[in-house]
Design a protein around this nucleic acid. Structure first.
Length: 230
DNA sequence: AGCACA
């Protein structure tokens, strides 16, 4: 409507300043720093102007978009790595290169490096993988809540069960076993690798580090049934 | 070393 007059080009800096100071609308946004939400407006404003401003804005937006997309993709990989979209489960090297995790430097933000999922996406699952982890090396006095805190952040975490056992031979200390259910074996594997050797006691370097395996008998509880079926 | 729940 009234935008016409400066859409046609008499809004050029020198012209408008010289002859029509009055008709410059107050609401007219300066194009060098936008208060307009979402740069789309600019593109509509001066399709022909110098192209400079518009182009600049567009390019910026694009690169931001791209970066954000990449960010999202990364997130997905990290969070769901080895998740539902599993690689071909062809048991190859069944080893557990714990050191890889440290080399990957996954999330070593503040000491307690827990690489949620880690970059192990290419590693095939070991043939004995199950969705339940068998965990030992827990201190005898640890609580269920405490252990849950360690496992809960991992993708696919479902449930945790603590079991107290007595030592086999006389004189041995009682110990605590733990079974952790995940939604699928791949997610269990991710947690296994990430927490293998985890220092339960950050201070006591020797005695309390976790040893994780896949449970021998995953059992009915973790049979991979849908989450809602009680 | 050691593997429970249904």
């Amino acid at each position: 409507m009234t935008d016409d007059h400066w859409k046609h080009g008499d809004a050029l800096p020198h012209a408008s300043a010289a002859q029509a100071p009055l008709q410059v609308p107050m609401k007219r946004p300066r194009s060098d720093h936008g208060d307009v939400p979402g740069g789309l407006e600019y593109v509509g404003y001066h399709p022909h102007e110098e192209g400079r401003v518009g182009c600049h804005v567009i390019r910026d937006t694009k690169s931001i978009d791209a970066a954000y997309e990449r960010y999202l993709r990364n997130r997905q990989i990290v969070l769901y790595g080895g998740g539902e979209s599993v690689r071909p489960v062809a048991g190859g090297m069944g080893g557990r290169p714990v050191d890889d995790m440290h080399m990957m430097g996954v999330g070593v933000m503040d000491g307690q490096s827990v690489g949620y999922g880690s970059g192990r996406s290419e590693m095939p699952l070991p043939p004995d993988a199950s969705s339940t982890l068998y965990v030992e090396g827990l201190p005898a006095n640890c609580t269920r809540r405490e252990v849950s805190h360690i496992f809960r952040p991992f993708a696919g975490f479902r449930e945790i069960r603590l079991v107290n056992k007595d030592s086999r031979f006389p004189g041995g200390d009682p110990f605590v076993l733990c079974f952790v259910d995940f939604s699928n074996p791949s997610q269990a594997a991710a947690a296994l690798d990430a927490l293998q050797g985890y220092k339960f006691d950050m201070l006591d370097q020797d005695s309390a580090n976790l040893r994780l395996q896949f449970a021998r008998f995953p059992g009915p509880r973790s049979a991979g049934r849908p989450r809602g079926s009680y």
